[in-house]
Design a protein around this nucleic acid. Structure first.
Lengths: 324, 324
DNA sequence: TTGTACGCGTTATCAT
DNA sequence: ATGATAACGCGTACAA
């Protein structure tokens, strides 16, 4: 450590760099000036090796979602996490987790590369690497399918929110309400379907108008076509996210079905799709940005050894626009 | 290194892990089995410290673009880079570079954290950290404003492509062609404006219908309003990217100006905005995905000490849809 | 082909 | 409050 040439020992320099207490103010100054004149930059590898901390956290995103950032949910969430971390000393390591080689992700996370991980995927795939929570602090976006008992996660009450959305349609006098559900191998898909069902049940309405999509706009279009092709009357639609709702709307518009006059539409997420579509979507506001903040906050707390709540529920709200 | 308990010395284990040549096949096997039974994962910090290589590369994105991933250009580029890197041994470190504290980015890049950097921003801000190309392999997305002589970058011929777009309007018989230009402090903004000018000049058309935006949809809307408020006749528009074109289209539609009947519109990028707008945009296809691939390829080559071209031009093409 | 021994740059422990 | 010194876990000459 050449900076020691500026008068003191390496230990003292180390103390200054990590602004430890009990350092003579004068020495601090002289060391700092030495540092800047020598353009000294601490080597991270050495620091990590000695301190067993890396000052970086992993953000694990699914590769399967072929275009992760085309999905406003992922894009906004990652963005939000990045913005939160930039304020801290931690660096973000983006791990695209290929379902093909889960060991790569696993060994990365366990190889001492990061102090913690934020898992942004919530599919119920193999996820052998989900079993790492004991060796490494991990926070999930949404209740994970496995080990939900001992995992930290932040999410919204999908079922209640979906019920609220469906209830909005019921309150508007709609009596034949369909839904385009999300994938049934992840909780948001399951819970939002369940919420729609409970609202319709308590209104004694038919709950058979269900088609499943995969949260993409294209799947929303296809699901809408299948619903219409059933030949049954439909005057209300709840889509499990705005992307699918947008897809459905384009099909409705193509077939000259008026929104909301003929079919009222409610989405979920309140993302960019909600307002880019005509008419603007009535939808459930999903606090994605807040979600990213909280995830990062909780992870940092865990890393620092502070306690944190395992379950973190964020509030949602119904945003009424023009489609319902 | 506990794996040495499986028969041999640590050096041999190291050789096996880094699959060095001249290792007895039998020993390789026994070591590998020992590795898997012991769940041994090499510690990266130690490895980096000893080998002076980190097996990770930085992707520097601007924080200023408040929502980086809301911009299809950045989102697609980062996505593409991520997909390319996942096939390699390199890990992606996402650095959101705050213009407020450029030293943070600089010291990160120079602190031995990464083997190279991909710079995805091309603003002409302070960028004191641009001066790192000598200490670290760096590849830029688009010709950097400074030190373009000795930098590696991949881009398209913005001027020629813009000229082609404007020429398309000229060929369609449009005689009063406006443009919504990009920021004039970055080359894509400057070059696309210049291309539009040259095409109009050689057709002896007026080149005064210029308004400048910042590549966002909102700025496109405002610029379009300013253009219309000039009171001059306009029958053609070239926007420097699809987002601004989309913004302009929404204003035109609001004012009951038909596209392309009254005003033909040509965009630039061929991103998701181009097809989400009605009518679908005629635009310049910008090979963003290919760009990410090439950037990563070149960076890896540089890291490996292989030679690479400093200037890498990718081809564009005119995509004719419904707006012009 | 394999093992020995040293060094990578920093933090942590223990004296002082 | 400061300085010596031993780890940290691995790569890699060099020797065998």
């Amino acid at each position: 450590m050449v900076a020691a040439l500026a008068g003191v020992s390496r230990s003292t320099v180390s103390r200054v760099v990590n602004d430890a207490p009990n350092v003579d103010p004068d020495i601090v100054k002289s060391v700092q000036s030495a540092i800047s004149t020598l353009n000294y930059i601490p080597n991270r590898a050495a620091r990590s090796l000695a301190s067993r901390r890396t000052n970086s956290v992993a953000v694990v995103v699914p590769e399967s979602t072929s275009k992760v950032f085309a999905d406003p949910f992922f894009a906004t969430l990652v963005e939000s996490i990045a913005q939160t971390l930039v304020e801290t000393k931690y660096t973000l390591n983006l791990i695209v987790s290929s379902e093909a080689r889960p060991e790569k992700t696993r060994s990365y996370l366990l190889g001492g590369n990061v102090d913690g991980a934020l898992v942004v995927s919530h599919h119920s795939g193999d996820h052998s690497w989900t079993r790492i929570s004991d060796s490494l602090p991990v926070v999930f976006a949404g209740r994970p399918f496995r080990g939900e008992g001992d995992s930290y996660y932040v999410e919204v009450n999908n079922q209640a929110a979906a019920a609220r959305a469906a209830q909005h349609l019921v309150d508007a006098g709609r009596t034949s309400i369909a839904t385009i559900a999300g994938p049934q191998d992840m909780y948001p898909g399951v819970d939002r379907l369940r919420g729609w069902e409970t609202a319709l049940r308590s209104a004694r309405l038919d709950t058979s108008l269900v088609e499943v999509g995969d949260f993409t706009q294209a799947s929303g279009r296809e699901a809408m076509r299948r619903l219409l092709d059933r030949g049954q009357r439909i005057d209300g639609l709840f889509a499990a996210n705005d992307q699918m709702a947008a897809g459905a709307c384009s099909v409705l518009t193509d077939r000259n079905i008026r929104i909301p006059a003929d079919i009222a539409v409610v989405g979920f997420d309140d993302d960019s799709f909600a307002t880019s579509v005509t008419p603007a979507l009535t939808t459930i506001h999903h606090p994605i940005v807040e979600m990213g903040h909280r995830m990062a906050e909780i992870l940092l707390a865990l890393i620092e050894g502070e306690p944190a709540d395992r379950v973190n529920l964020l509030p949602t709200s119904l945003v009424v626009r023009d489609s319902a």
